[in-house]
Amino acid sequence: MELNVRLFALYRERAGANTISVAVNDGATVADLTAEVRRQLPNLAPPEVNIVVAVNADYAAPDVILKPGDDVCLIPPVSGG
């Protein structure tokens, strides 16, 4: 399946795009997605930085299974306040 993945802040600037399209197998997990994102965009985040994912506007653990149509966003380390 093809997922539209939204990017914010540092990740948006590094990718030069608000959204990217990422192809993963049916039944893929959040961890599968971040592995594929790293293949597509090796400079998005250094290997030691965990890429945090939000699915349908909530933080999603690496083992969460993705479904077509999910709202998937990559969340760089936050710095509000």
């Binding site: 914010f8 802040a9 939000a54 933080y59 966003c73 760089p76 936050v78 710095s79 509000g80 306040g81």
Partner: peptide, 8 residues
């Protein structure tokens, strides 16, 4: 500062 997705 820990959980809200806001960036400066």
């Amino acid at each position: 500062k820990e959980v809200v997705p806001i960036w400066k």
